[in-house]
Amino acid sequence: MGPLLFLLSALSALRFTVTEVPSLQLIHPRTITQISASELAGFAPYTQFARAAYCPTDVLKTWTCGEACQANADFEVAFVGGDGDDIQNYFVGYSPSLGAIIVTHEGTDPTQLESDLTDIDIPLAKPSNALFPGISLSVEVHSGFLNEHALSARSILAEVDSLMASKGVNKIVAVGHSLGGALAEIDTVFLRLNIPSASIFAMTYGTPRVGNPAWAALVDSSNVNFKRIDNKQDLIPIVPGRFLGFEHPAGEIHILGAGDAVSCPGDDDATDSDCQIASVPTIFEGSIVDHLGPYEGIYLGTIYCT
């Protein structure tokens, strides 16, 4: 994206924030709730799965990826895919200690993702009926995310089906950071539509906006326990801009500092000062460094796969 397009996108995001957020804050009362220390600690296994996804496929297959794998030492890897290039790495397996099938996607270079997601000409597309049966015509998703998801969707579905049968469990947790978080968000709807009997959860980190308001409403209504965690001044969760037709679903948890996080209500909460949009109203006030963490002491990205 050229400098002019970047500037136009940023200025549009700034105009949207200045005209809307302060007035809403005057109208609505503070409705956030504090996340307890025990609940924050309970996120750690999933954060480590997101960290592990950045590791090479050969060490994922043997579950020898250092601290990230050691933190979930009982994990049973069933399938590892992707090439780290055209197809983001991903893995599927069973965690006895969590009693769940885990589906995890790798993220990507945050500086590249920022550039892609601040473009003012981001195409939205309708998910295919083949992968998302019966989906409403009003639902639209970032076309790049949809295309990437489609590359692994059928393989993941087949492996999840097999594990549900062999392990006798129906709990599935989709996990991912950055682009991996966007793919995990899409997984929640994909798995709900294709495995209606499953109990589906999601833990995403530093996730950009994935689709339009109809998509957000679909995630909200899909009977999924969905949590999207954003860290301090991370700018990736505020792109693509809402003025481009994008909206987050509910489930935001905003980390304010070590041991300090809040649960933010509704879709894309812009009314509470401790939630992401008010904390990072424009990309100029955001931080790429915060995108990497720490998420309660855990950093995510290729350089942290040790």
Rank of each mutant, 00 (worst) to 15 (best):
L4M: 08
S12V: 05
S221V: 06
F91T: 03
Q112D: 04
N72Q: 13
L117F: 13
G42A: 11
W215I: 08
V169Q: 13
I283M: 08
Q34D: 13
L117V: 08
A198R: 02
F43H: 10
Y295D: 02
M203Y: 09
K232Q: 13
P196N: 01
P110M: 05
Q112V: 12
P249R: 01
D269E: 09
V92T: 07
T31H: 04
G93Y: 01
G81F: 07
I135A: 12
Y54Q: 04
L183H: 14
P213M: 11
I283C: 10
I101H: 08
V210A: 13
N72F: 15
I156W: 06
A216D: 04
P127A: 13
T64G: 08
G180I: 05
P110T: 03
I32R: 10
V210R: 13
L5W: 01
S128P: 01
F6M: 04
G257K: 01
A150M: 02
V21W: 09
I186T: 11
L256I: 03
R154Y: 02
H105G: 10
K61M: 06
S197P: 00
N223H: 06
I236R: 07
M1C: 11
I122T: 14
A53P: 00
T104A: 15
N147I: 08
L300Q: 01
I87K: 04
T207W: 07
P240I: 00
P249N: 08
A100N: 03
K171L: 14
R192F: 05
F226M: 02
S178Q: 01
E140L: 07
T306P: 14
T111G: 13
S9M: 01
G180E: 05
E252H: 11
S178D: 02
T306E: 15
A217N: 07
D269Q: 08
T204S: 14
A41W: 10
L218V: 03
A158I: 04
D74G: 12
P294F: 06
P294R: 00
